[in-house]
Design a protein around this nucleic acid. Sequence first.
DNA 1: CCAAAAATTGCAACCGGTTGCAATTTTGAT
DNA 2: ATCAAAATTGCAACCGGTTGCAATTTTTGG
Lengths: 339, 339
Amino acid sequence: MAVTLKEVAQRAGVSRSAVSRTFTHGASVSEKMRRRVERAARELGYSPNALASSLTTGRTKLIGLVSNNFHNPIFLEVFDLFTRGLQDRGLRPLLVNLTNETAPENSVRMLRQYSVDGVVVASSTLPPGFSKAFRDANVPVVHSFGRYSSAPQVHIVSIDNVECGRMVARTLVARGYERVAFLGGPESATSTQDRFAGFMSEMSLHPQVKTTHTFADAYSFDAGRNEMLRLLQSEPAEAYFCGDDVLSIGALSAIESSGLSVPDDIGIIGLNDMEMARWENINLTTIHQPIREIITSSIELIVAMLDEPDRYPEARIFPSSVVERGTLRPLPDNAPSTG
Amino acid sequence: MAVTLKEVAQRAGVSRSAVSRTFTHGASVSEKMRRRVERAARELGYSPNALASSLTTGRTKLIGLVSNNFHNPIFLEVFDLFTRGLQDRGLRPLLVNLTNETAPENSVRMLRQYSVDGVVVASSTLPPGFSKAFRDANVPVVHSFGRYSSAPQVHIVSIDNVECGRMVARTLVARGYERVAFLGGPESATSTQDRFAGFMSEMSLHPQVKTTHTFADAYSFDAGRNEMLRLLQSEPAEAYFCGDDVLSIGALSAIESSGLSVPDDIGIIGLNDMEMARWENINLTTIHQPIREIITSSIELIVAMLDEPDRYPEARIFPSSVVERGTLRPLPDNAPSTG
DNA sequence: CCAAAAATTGCAACCGGTTGCAATTTTGAT
DNA sequence: ATCAAAATTGCAACCGGTTGCAATTTTTGG
């Protein structure tokens, strides 16, 4: 169906190698030959078959983009940035949706069958073993938004979720809250575990502040709303650290429909700083996660691994910061406001 | 690096064809041979190279998933459904982000180089010529969420945006609004054009109702909010048909921060019925677009085209319907409520 | 038990490219 | 003009599979 190299060679009256070489960067071809071949190619509408060439070169320029997070709006931005970043470098994202998938082997096998040059795992709700499965299969892998580890087995590009938890704790304490709570995402997510651990460890330095915790089923609006509705039935805390912005928005909705007001009755702080957090009618105080930087760095890393597959695994951790908006009470007068 | 068919053949002491056949569905192999080969394959950890086989079979099972819509949260759901639907049928989505891309040829060339079996174009903001470029290049294409046409040049799976516009017009008239307006998305989007045309044509049957219109820069929260803020400075209409839910939410935010209330002072109706529209603190009256059905049908269609590439182009149009929530005044007493 | 039909297997060519090597041509310095 | 070095080109083998065909083996039916 499609025009092949052979036909171009015939038309131009040259060998197949000559045609191949004009389309291979850095190969030895004279100007005259190049023009001749290019003309024939143009006339025939030829463009080389990337898959056939991958057979000998061993490079497909295919990158597996693996995620199980197709419900948190922040991941639309993640996919946007990843796909554009990869495309800009001539790489092609093969998207793998891991939702409901428990066996990493299947995805690993599939991606190997397609000879992907590398894999980016973008999710915080997958166990670290998942990305390791790719490494074990000897395919270069970067785990973006994964769990920080001081002895990483695969490349990690992420934030320090433990530190985020601490940061929130300090923020709430500084504002004088005396009963605070953690409203986390699914307890199985490493991000939830780490944020929780950091939060609790910092709060333990302030024993006068009563600290409680609870977990929602998912990082979703409904989960946040339902959990908060439940909490409002007994004695709620003064401020909640929600494990994620979507959870926060669900919680806000529950509070408002109970006739209470934010931040006067209850304070909320989220995590992610998704686009929506800026929206006037949400205006969520939250922790900014530097998505753009994480993704840029992840792409640089996977590109580097193409040339150096056995590169020693590293963890790249980007700093997060509090974004003051309207869902926490302001700092008391004796402290300088950061808003 | 990876184990090849040849090595398996050697280990099993059989011909390469025998190995190939045990991994090819429907090929002729005896039970004995199969077991022998499978054992060797297992011991070596072999799995066939999908790209190499595509060379002879002419099938890659790769499907280009092309979109330029990476900012509207509804598209996260679209990607989720598409990727899972394709995976379930053994197809692999090669994601192409067309944001800022004006020349279709580039994407067409790229996807042909990777020998995709078909292409799904998922967007309402691309000109019809874009999907036609794939057809012209002889690659099976389905345009999901594209413009309805009675003489389609490519397969379309979509809603009837003109009819949606009419439906909204009837809805607003039935509720007794006397000054209504269309607050559209980008004027260049065919979906905007069609919704606008339908809305205006139906409104022209009710000359006593004052009808105006305006367009936002994008299908985004900020665009909707800014446009509505501008509108509020002169005399606003009683009800707005926003071209999309995200625009609606932006408009809602503008109205609320101006101290006006919805639906008492101003009514809003959106289009899409995205997940967020259901959220308690948004509770948007909107037109439901049957995304799930559109995607299922698109996948069925592209699968059918794999066997029948020259299938005659058809348009599959799914019905939309009004979802009553809280942003329009109720129907007057003399009409039955649908809410 | 035998012949004919059906099933199985291997050979070798092919899919659409790439690349090492040797032959040929061009270049450049004398 | 001469010759060595450098650049260009084609041949042929190869990448990892598939498949038509013919040879061989097994099955079936009488």
